Amino acid sequence: MKNRLINGNVQGGIDVSELSKMEQLFKVIDQSAVILRKELNCLYLEAVAETGENLFQEDILQDELDEVTKKRLQKEYSSVKLNQFEQETIRKAYQLAVLKGMKEAIQPNHQMTPDAVGLFMGYVVGKFMEGNQSYTILDPAVGAGNLITTILNMHSHSIEQVYGVDIDDLLLQLTYVNANLQKHGVELFHQDSLQPLFIDPVDLVICDLPVGYYPNDEGAAQYKVKSEEGHTYAHHLFIEKSLNHVKPGGYVVTLIPNNLFDSEQSHLLQALLKEEAIVQAIIQLPLSMFKQEEAAKSILVLQKKGEGVTPPENALLVNLPKFSNKQGMNNIMSQMNEWFKLNK
């Protein structure tokens, strides 16, 4: 799957008029998806992908629909013009529809990176990649594409090429449509990311790590973090895979469980990081974001070792307050900006 890269303007925040536009576009996506779900006898998520493709192609691609249904859909589509919407508005409207579908048919791998987290990861990426006029990105667990398109909308002026990989064909189809609607070029691969990837090393890997055990013991055997007995943690394997696929001096920015370094397999991961990477930052997300403390996550920033790569005097270690705590966030951001001045 390929689409052409068209750079768009970076938009910060969303005003009232954009909010109403987002609601308008979501309503069209949602109502047309409801029609398609009924007529095609498919999942709502599948219908979201179908209707998104219709919107992008400006046509109704489902030949099996009768004329009455096509007219109903055409009426929905004719009420919006995609070129009148900002990329972030499109992303948020599409994201709402995908979230609705994920709540309807919950699967462990059908979860989306929260918006506030994606935007903060985008800020972190901007800080660490500052000074790079153009760079390449890989997301080895791209899911429905919300994280990668959030970062693209923030930094598309600097991003040269984007690769996304996922084993779930429905999620990959959602990413494909998501990127097309926002006019972003993303090269997508439908496969198990922990198997060999035919992608050149990139400057940056971003990932909301899939957490759990990897069932393929034979596949895990090729990795340094493989467990001595039983299944290996998939999130450990994804970190090693990410380091394998980033250039020397490149960065890996991942969302990790807070207990990453406390598990019975953590000594294997720590040995790998000591050998191959520099821990630049661990940023703990607000505990209030998570229903259970054991589900809490942090942002981990690694830099792959290489010639001329030196570790910071001290890694950036941050506990974020609630995002709604403006004073607390301003204080933390000031501290982080001071760290970047000293270490970048």
Rank of each mutant, 00 (worst) to 15 (best):
E275R: 15
N153R: 04
Q95T: 13
L36C: 11
K2F: 12
R37N: 01
F238A: 02
R37Q: 14
S79V: 05
I159N: 03
P196K: 06
E23P: 01
Y176D: 14
F238R: 06
D15M: 04
K322S: 13
K38W: 02
M329K: 05
S78M: 05
V253Q: 06
K38Y: 03
P201L: 11
L273Q: 10
K291Y: 08
S242F: 12
L181H: 12
P196L: 01
L188S: 06
I167W: 05
T232N: 07
E275D: 15
Y123K: 07
V309H: 12
H267S: 15
P257Y: 11
L152A: 12
P312D: 12
E228M: 05
I60G: 00
V125Q: 04
L170W: 14
E64P: 00
K297W: 08
V142H: 08
I299R: 07
K224Q: 14
E294A: 02
I159H: 05
N7K: 14
Q284C: 10
V125G: 02
L268M: 15
E294D: 15
K27S: 13
N83C: 09
F189T: 07
E18N: 06
S288D: 14
K71Q: 13
L287D: 14
N54W: 00
I6R: 09
T150V: 11
I278D: 08
R91W: 08
L25V: 08
I256V: 15
E18M: 10
